[in-house]
Simulated scan of single mutants.
Amino acid sequence: MKIIIAPDKFKGSLTGMEFCSAIEEGIKKHIDDVVMVKLPLADGGDGTVEVLKYYLDGEMISLEVNDPLHRKVNASYLYSASKKTAFIEMSAASGIRLLKEEEANPMLTSTYGTGELIADALKRGATHIILGIGGSATNDAGMGMARALGYRFFDSNRKELEGKGEDMIRLDFIDTSAVHYALKKVKFEVACDVDNPLYGINGAAHIYSPQKGASPDMVAQLDNGLIRFNKVVNDQFAMDLQHIKGAGAAGGLGAGCILFLNAQLNSGIELIKKVADFDNKIMDADWIITGEGKLDSQTLSGKVIRGVLDALSGQKLALFCGLVDLSEEELKAIPTDYLAQISSSAKDVKDSMQNARIYLQMAAEEFASSGLLGSEKNMY
C-alpha cells in the first residue's frame, strides 16, 4: 500500500513537515506493509518557503533592502543554485508587517525592496523566479519594484517619479531603455489567489487599500491612479491590464508583474504542486492524507485541500484537521473517505494547539487501527 501525506501547516502549531512525521509515526505503530511519501504543500502564503526548501534544496539568502517606506531592512529569500530557482515573498521587503499601524499609508509606500530582492536573484543567475505577493503594504502597481530593475517613470514635465502609490496619478511616460538585461531570460511565476481587476469597486484600491491605512479620500486617489497607470500602459504598450484576472492583487502588483516581468499569474497551490511534481507522484497511491489547521468555508477556495481534491484520480482521501467549522451539508460536498478533528481529543483550543503533534499522532493511530488500511501489525 502507498500513502501520500500532503498537508498544509497547522498555523501556529505544526509545520507541514511536522504533520507528515506525526502521521507517519502514528500509522507505523499499527501497520508495517505500507510505503509513505511525504509531500508537504502550501498555497503561496505563510509556510511556503519551508515547503519549497524541501523540494528545491535551496538556501536562504539575506540582504539589506528598502522597506515600504524606503528605510533599510534585512530581508531574505530562498535560492536553489542547482535549479537556478528563487522563491521571493514580497512581504519580506514590502509587507504590511514591516510597518507600525500608524505608519501604514499606501500613498507613500513602495515595492522597491521587492525589486531589489529580484535583482539579487538575477545577479546569482536565477532563470526561474516564483514570487509570492500576499501581505503587501503597497498600492503602487509594481512601479517601485520596476524602478529597482531599471524602469523609470516620468510625469508630463519629465520629472522622474519615485514609484510610490501617490505617483500613479501623475504618470505620463515609462522609460524602458535601462531595464535589467537579465529580465528577458527569466521565467517569472506569481502566486496569486485573488481575481480582482486593477481598478473599480472590486479593484486593488477599493478592496485592499483600507487594510493598508488608506482613508476614503486616499482610496479614491489611488483608484484614479490605477486608472491613469492603465491608460499610460495601454497607450505605450497596447496592453489593457484591467481585464486580466488578478491584476489588482497586492495593490496592483499583479498587473505590474505581468507588465514589467512578463509574468504568469497562477494559483499558489498549483505552483507548489508543480514544483513538487505532485500529480505524477500520486498516480499509484492508494490513499492521500491531507489537512490544515481549520477546515472552513475558505478551504475550497484556492487552499491546499482544494488543490489536493483537484488532483484526485481514484485515490481515497483522508482529512486530518485541527478544527472543523463546516455544516453537515458543506461537509457532504467534500469527497473524503475519512475525517479526523484532532481538537475533539483536547481539553480546549489552547491544549489542542500546544499539543497538536501528540493529538495528530493519536488520530493517525486511530485511523491505522480502523481497518481501512488493511491488516494491523502482529503485536505478539
Rank of each mutant, 00 (worst) to 15 (best):
D193R: 06
T336H: 09
E89F: 01
T127R: 13
D217L: 02
L108W: 02
R158W: 13
K332W: 06
T114H: 07
A238C: 13
A205N: 03
G322R: 03
A368W: 05
K184S: 14
F10P: 15
M60P: 02
V73E: 10
N234G: 14
N266V: 15
K273S: 09
I4P: 02
A22F: 01
T109L: 07
K100T: 12
C257T: 06
E329D: 12
D140V: 01
A182T: 07
H180R: 12
G44W: 10
Q211V: 05
S345C: 01
D277E: 15
L78F: 07
F153Q: 04
G115N: 05
E102F: 05
G225S: 02
D172P: 00
I269G: 08
V233L: 01
S110M: 04
L360N: 05
M90K: 03
N66I: 01
M60K: 15
F320S: 06
L331P: 10
L317T: 14
A285V: 11
I342V: 15
G225Y: 00
L183C: 07
S80Q: 06
V65I: 08
K164V: 11
G45S: 08
R170Q: 04
G307F: 11
S297G: 07
H206D: 04
Y151W: 13
L56F: 09
L259K: 00
N74R: 15
G125H: 04
D46W: 02
N378W: 10
L339W: 03
K28I: 00
I207L: 11
I27D: 08
S76A: 12
I358M: 15
S345I: 00
S76Q: 12
L131A: 04
S80P: 09
A276P: 09
S21Y: 13
Q221G: 04
T114R: 02
K2E: 15
A148D: 10
A92G: 12
Q236C: 02
N66D: 12
G248H: 07
S156I: 11
N280D: 11
A75S: 15
T290I: 10
I207A: 11
L171G: 09
